[in-house]
Write a protein that binds this DNA or RNA. Structure first.
Length: 922
RNA sequence: GCCCGAGUGGCGGAAUCGGUAGACGCGUCGGUCUCAAAAACCGAUAGGUUCACCCCUGUGCCGGUUCGAGUCCGGCCUCGGGUACCA
């Protein structure tokens, strides 16, 4: 057993860990806890490629490292198993999603186990498991049964709100759903149940509302924005229309401020926090009511720049704005009708792609409340119905879009910026002085904002207003493969099912097609939807992010049948200390799971309101594609170096047929029938391919499977190499050639323990030399420092250097080799376990103590000082560390290299930093 | 357009606090072993000049601060990511 048989070693230890449940953890421990979590995967049909495990390897290294440092580590894995691809596969192939998902999970687990992760698999969860989604449904009911108290900024039970209504009405508690709803206690008492429940719906955190969606009558289904092109359905070209449908929503807007404030407490990257802030999109300004000449109605606008009110030259309403129809004059009616039908036919996608200026004058005028000027009211696409009040006051001299619009339609521009406005383009500055602006003329703009808001408030026609870009989150899907809602309708009023009836299990269907009236496939099952007592089940299912919003809690207590997670257990494991995953979930999953955590905390079910203490976003690994060049119109392929002489088409070649850049032409001919007749123009007897870095994916034939890497080089090599590729948080290309270097390193490590030729072990009980100790302890320090700051790639370099040095020193001392294995084991657990056992240990290296580095062993007796003259390196001198400064100077000045550049002059100044660097200034 | 982030050898990258730029690895070249090749191992490898030492240049570009700048400041250029008629 003295050769490095990595396949045997991998298998042996993976089996050992499984049989001994080495990584099983319990919550009752005196050790400090550490929770390190991966974003769980959606098990797709194509399995893992080498890009996927990058984050898993990093988190596994941290998990193993923290275990060695004496922490009780929770490191679980599971599967986000509900989702669209499985359902799409079912529609196309008739395979039930449960079956294809099961199969995919089996593949994922096998691939993950090959890499030697230290997951506690006894905690595995699947979001599509009824024992799991039972609690997803339960949390939904918590959301349904609660409301957000703005004065306390937290969620409370809906029963509390009912008590408030009965006692005092809603006068202190305006409805987020119906802004103009006011009633007192007596009113509430007289409302029939249906009306009471309708009112409560306006407060619930999970609520039903009518939302505008694209409806296609011919296809009998709702379409997403990107499925509608040029006003017709992408598939089939059928007409579509805007339709209001009743959908479930989560009232995430109430938590906007909490979600922003929470970002201060968590350790996420600046860019990710910025993405979340932009998503919430909080802005400060005012709502202003403008009188409309000849009408009783007011036109309410939202603006962040009330100070520019004297520069308003026109008003714009969104085409969907309800006042458009009311105020349009007879003279303008025909033009407006034409414009509205044009606007209605354009999807949001088209609006975004094609931003030409369009609009139409309504014929009506608003009145400037300060100077009485009449302001023409227009409608135009560039104002969105969904943001602010759906209407704006346009200030062309200060806003680019308003300026472009004014320019396009020949509207005269008022200048309130003095010479800060050049008449050519708008100037959106906030740091200017206001001109030509009535009572605020001469004021600074920031000051002007306050003055105008005050004046508006005094007249009762405007007030300070904070606006958010974020909308309430749609929570309904007309799909099959998701969590059913635990809700039933009686006379069209939704009621929560009692907890005892959970889980509402997803029934079996044979047909995955849409149901009637924009409903999902479940609506095709009357036996399921219609309860014997006449109540009707909700037929929508929950979206993909439902199950993933709380899964980190279930891992803590995965088999609990009476609660989603026991409170004492969640108190122990608490927040996720390190959460590892990609940025693609920056504003989706991360925001929703932060929301659910806050609600569960407010309702007293857990003790913390941010799920993830620290977030690490791993980069993506790109594929290194290979291209062959086919001369256009022929079956002849020209080698990359000669292609300039021909007109060619690029063909992606499967990377398995290429060594470096050299194509195996026989394999290429056998690859696909249409290549069988291929001829090649070679250079130097070889066909060389071109290379390109791009996304790793099937269609580019550049996918590298981790299974192949593990089979060829072993799990340890694969793990270390993935970390060695570069900083964990940047995108980087995969280069299979480079993996050899890491493999050589592990062989070199092996040879430190075994003489393979003589088939004998090399370690001894000999005391280590000072130099050996220095090498080891430097490595311990470096590995620890780098892991604490999540610099995974530099750790590999440090370990390689350590082994290189120990090899040069012919180190054989067990006192060095043992700690070396411990610090290496998070990266290369299999080989370390094996060697650890050879050294005579009976217990797994997992239970070893992490060695402590000793500064005094690292410090050297002499130090090499670089000597600069006038800032340029001129000499190096070696002196004892504790040598007096004056003595160091004497030696430095006597050095021939320095003497030469002093040119006989006396030094003016010496610079001495940390006793290490000297600069002699002449 | 706006907001982030990054530009270092042939390549991936290192330099943690402003202090010997290019660690570690790949590739390439040379060597050992071999009849030979592969594998393995050893050595060289920023560019210029040179037999070699020296010396000079060098971290996207221009300028600044400093005894000293890849690192800090100002102005550009390029690439990557996010986001967008958000008033």
């Amino acid at each position: 057993m003295s050769t490095f048989a990595f396949q045997t070693i991998d298998q042996k230890w993976q089996q050992f860990w499984k049989e001994n449940q080495t990584y099983r953890v319990a919550h009752n421990s005196d050790k400090p806890k550490y929770y390190v979590l991966d974003m769980f995967p959606y098990p797709s049909g194509s399995g893992l490629h080498v890009g996927h495990p990058l984050g898993y390897i990093a988190s596994d290294i941290i998990a193993r490292y923290k275990r060695l440092k004496g922490y009780n580590v929770l490191h679980p894995m599971g599967f986000d198993a509900f989702g669209l691809p499985a359902e799409q596969y079912a529609i196309e192939h008739g395979v039930h999603p449960a079956i294809s998902t099961e199969k995919n999970i089996a593949t994922y687990r096998r691939q993950l186990e090959n890499i030697g992760f230290s997951y506690d698999w006894s905690r595995e969860i699947r979001t599509s498991d009824p024992e799991y989604y039972r609690w997803t449904q339960w949390i939904f009911l918590q959301l349904f049964d609660s409301w957000f108290d703005r004065s306390q900024q937290k969620a409370l039970p809906i029963a509390d709100l009912e008590a408030i209504f009965a006692a005092e009405g809603n006068l202190s508690y305006p409805s987020p759903g119906q802004k103009d709803l006011h009633f007192n206690a007596a009113d509430w008492g007289h409302y029939p149940e249906a009306q009471q429940r309708e009112i409560l719906m306006g407060y619930r955190l999970a609520f039903l509302d009518h939302a505008s969606v694209w409806w296609c009558e011919a296809l009998g289904t709702v379409l997403a924005n990107d499925e509608v092109v040029n006003g017709v359905s992408e598939r089939g070209g059928h007409p579509v229309e805007r339709k209001k449908l009743r959908q479930w929503f989560l009232r995430i807007t109430e938590y906007a401020d909490r979600l922003l404030e929470g970002l201060e407490q968590v350790d996420f990257s600046d860019s990710l926090k910025e993405m979340q802030r932009n998503w919430v999109g909080k802005s400060y300004g005012a709502e202003i009511d403008f009188e409309i000449e000849g009408h009783a109605e007011k036109l309410r606008v939202y603006t962040t720049r009330p100070d520019t009110i004297f520069g308003v030259d026109f008003m714009v309403m969104a085409p969907e704005h309800e006042l458009v129809a009311q105020i349009t004059t007879t003279g303008q009616q025909a033009e407006i009708d034409a414009y509205l039908s044009y606007a209605k036919s354009r999807s949001e996608v088209e609006r975004m792609a094609d931003k030409k200026i369009s609009g139409c004058f309504t014929g009506a005028y608003a009145v400037n409340p300060f100077d009485g000027r009449l302001i023409p009211i227009w409608t135009a696409e560039y104002v969105l119905a969904g943001y602010g009040t759906g209407a704006i006051m346009a200030v062309p001299c200060g806003d680019e879009r308003d300026f472009a619009f004014a320019h396009h339609f020949g509207i005269a521009v008022t200048n309130i910026l003095g010479d800060q406005f050049n008449g050519e383009e708008a100037n959106p500055t906030k740091d200017g002085v206001l001109h030509n602006s009535g009572f605020i003329t001469g004021m600074g703009m920031r000051e002007g904002i306050e003055a105008v808001i005050e004046a508006l408030a005094g007249k009762g026609i405007g007030k300070r207003h904070t606006n958010y870009r974020m909308r309430d989150a749609g929570f309904s899907r007309q799909r099959y493969w998701g969590e059913p809602f635990p809700v039933v309708f009686r006379e069209n009023i939704p009621y929560a099912l009692p907890e005892s009836e959970l889980p509402v299990e997803l029934p079996h269907v044979d047909n995955y097609g849409a149901g009637p009236d924009g409903q999902g496939p479940l609506a095709n099952l009357p036996a399921w939807t219609q309860l014997p007592d006449g109540r009707l089940r909700e037929t929508n299912t929950m979206p993909g992010y439902a199950g993933s919003s709380w899964y980190f809690l279930r891992y803590m207590d995965p088999h609990n049948e009476t609660a989603f997670c026991d409170r004492t257990i969640s108190d122990y494991w608490n927040q996720v200390d390190l959460y590892v995953g990609g940025t693609e979930h920056a504003v989706g999953h991360l925001l929703y799971s932060r929301l659910w955590t806050k609600v569960l905390c407010d309702l007293g079910h857990i003790s913390f309101d941010e799920p993830y203490k620290k977030l690490l976003n791993q980069g993506k690994i790109g594929g290194d594609s290979r291209l062959a060049y086919r001369i256009r119109g022929t079956q002849t392929y020209v080698s990359a170096g000669l292609k300039a002489d021909y007109e060619t088409d690029e063909i992606h070649v499967d990377i398995s047929m290429v060594q470096g850049f050299e194509l195996d032409v026989e394999a290429f001919r056998n690859w696909r029938p249409d290549f069988a007749q291929a001829e090649f123009i070679l250079e130097n007897g070889k066909y060389l391919c071109g290379g390109r870095l791009e996304k790793m994916g099937k269609r580019y034939f550049n996918v590298v499977n981790p299974d192949d890497m593990v089979a060829q080089y072993g799990a340890d090599t694969f793990r270390m190499y993935e970390m060695f590729l570069g900083p964990i948080d940047t995108d980087k290309p995969w280069d299979t050639q480079g993996i050899e270097g890491v493999h050589r390193f592990l062989r070199k490590l092996w040879r430190l323990f075994f003489d393979e030729k003589a088939a004998k072990s090399l370690w001894t009980d000999q005391a280590p030399s000072a130099e050996e100790l220095r090498v080891l302890h430097r490595a311990i320090r470096k590995v620890e420092d780098d892991l604490e700051r999540l610099s995974f790639n530099t750790v590999v370099s440090a370990l390689m250097m350590c082994v290189n040095d120990l090899t040069d020193l012919k180190c054989s001392s067990k006192a060095i080799l043992e700690p070396l294995l411990v610090i290496l084991s998070p990266y290369a657990p299999h080989i370390c376990e094996e060697l650890w056992q050879h050294l005579g240990h009976t217990e797994s290296i997992v239970f070893a103590d992490y060695p402590v580095w000793d500064e005094s062993l690292i410090r050297e007796n002499t130090v090499e000082l670089p000597i600069q003259v006038n800032g340029k390196m001129r000499a190096k001198i070696t002196v004892p560390v504790d040598m007096e400064e004056a003595e160091v100077r004497k030696i430095a000045l006597a050095d021939p290299g320095v003497v030469k550049f002093l040119e006989g002059k006396e030094p003016k100044k010496f610079i001495l930093v940390k006793g290490r660097i000297i600069n002699v200034v002449v």
